[in-house]
Amino acid sequence: MHLVHPATLAVLLFCVGLYGVLARRNTVLVLMSVELMLAAVSLNLVAFDVWLADELHSGQVFTLFLIALAAAEIGIGLAIVLLVYRRRGTVALDRLRALRDGPGADEAAEAAGPTDAAARPTAIDAARGQETTTP
């Protein structure tokens, strides 16, 4: 098989994932796009490993590691997203701007409040529910 095929597929998959990371607003969707990028890298590793016919199977072993790391990453990432959601009532990436420079950084965070007014009480409820289910 021509090596260009898997390599090009990996590149295109990576760029689609990149677009998703840069363009999506929902943080969970951003995490999905990150998974796509990781998968593209995995494909690259496997393809080159098979091409080189490596005795130690480095590429495929690393792919295994990568899959495990991706699982860990998605677990931590989702935990963070949930925490952010509980505290801010939103998972929209472009509203989480507390790190912005200059005066009005807090105000910006507050200004995001009214639009999330509907989401906020439910966020608190979600936190409460979480609390009651956690032993």
Partner: peptide
């Protein structure tokens, strides 16, 4: 590393008492 990630995820996502207050 996986274990650490597991523990980390639990610690991060555990609901603390002040979360709801800060959310308010």
């Amino acid at each position: 590393l996986l274990l650490a990630a597991l523990v980390g995820a639990i610690v991060i996502s555990r609901a603390r008492r002040d979360d709801s207050e800060e959310g308010r």
